[in-house]
C-alpha cells in the first residue's frame, strides 16, 4: 500500500505533534551548541563553524529525505506547503537579519534555546524580537507594497532552472562537501 504523507491531522493532534517535534528541535539546537551566542556568532569571525556545519547538514538530510520520499511516491510533494518566495523583501530581510543575528548573538529559535540554558540576555533578545515585530506591524501600511513585491510563490531552484531536483542536489552536496572540508582544514591549521 502506498503511504499518503503528509497526513491530515486534527488540530489537537497537530498541536501535540508541534510540541513533540519542537522538543527534538530544541534538544538538537542546544546539543549542537546553538544556544550559545559565542558559538552562534563565531562563523562571522571565523572562530567557530558550528552554525554552518549544523545548518547545512540539516538542510542536506532533510532535502535528501524529502525528495527521496517524493520520488518513491511515499510523499505527495504537491501537498507540502512550499516556503513562498518574495525576492527583494527576502533579500533585504535576510541582509538585515544577518546584522540583528550578529549584534544580538541569537536568532529567534536559538534565543529560546539560549534561555533554556539559563541565558538571561537571550530573554532580552526575545523581548526585542517582539518589539521589532510590533515596529513592523506599525509601519506595515507604508511598506506593504514592498513587502508584497517580486512574488515568485512556490519557486524552487529545480523549477526555476528547469532541471531535475537531483541535479540541484548534486550541486548542494558538492558545495557542502567543499565547505565542510575547508572549515575542517581551517580549524586544524589555526
Amino acid at each position: 500500500m502506498v503511504m499518503n504523507a503528509p497526513f491530515i491531522v486534527s488540530q489537537t493532534a497537530g498541536l501535540i505533534l508541534a510540541v513533540v517535534l519542537g522538543l527534538f528541535f530544541g534538544l538538537f539546537l542546544e546539543r549542537g551548541g546553538l544556544g550559545n551566542p559565542h558559538k552562534l556568532t563565531g562563523v562571522f569571525y571565523l572562530t567557530d563553524f558550528s552554525v554552518p556545519k549544523a545548518m547545512f547538514t540539516a538542510i542536506l538530510v532533510a532535502a535528501t529525505g524529502l525528495y527521496l520520499l517524493s520520488d518513491l511516491k511515499l510523499l505527495d510533494m504537491h501537498r507540502v506547503w512550499i516556503v513562498p518566495t518574495f525576492f527583494w523583501p527576502q533579500l533585504l530581510g535576510g541582509a538585515l537579519f544577518g546584522i540583528g543575528f550578529l549584534v544580538s548573538g541569537y536568532c529567534p529559535g536559538t534565543a529560546v534555546a539560549g534561555l533554556s540554558s539559563g541565558r538571561l540576555d537571550a530573554l532580552v533578545t526575545m523581548l526585542g524580537i517582539g518589539a521589532g515585530s510590533l515596529v513592523f506591524a506599525i509601519v506595515y501600511p507604508a511598506i506593504e507594497g514592498f513587502y508584497s513585491s517580486s512574488p515568485m510563490e512556490g519557486a524552487t531552484l529545480p523549477s526555476l532552472l528547469g532541471v531535475s531536483h537531483w541535479v540541484v542536489m548534486a550541486f548542494v552536496y558538492l558545495m557542502a562537501a567543499g565547505m565542510f572540508y575547508a572549515m575542517e582544514r581551517y580549524e586544524r591549521t589555526r
Binding site: I59, L66, V83, L96, C107, P108, G132, P158, V168
Partner: peptide, 28 residues
C-alpha cells in the same frame, strides 16, 4: 539586535527556521 531580527523576519516572512532551514531543504 532583537528589534532588528523581529522586524527583518517579518519582512522576509520568516527567519533562520521557517525560511532558511525549511525553505533551504525544500530547495525553495
Amino acid at each position: 539586535g532583537g528589534i532588528i531580527i523581529g522586524f527583518s523576519s517579518r519582512l522576509a516572512r520568516g527567519c533562520t527556521s521557517g525560511v532558511a532551514l525549511s525553505g533551504g531543504a525544500q530547495l525553495a
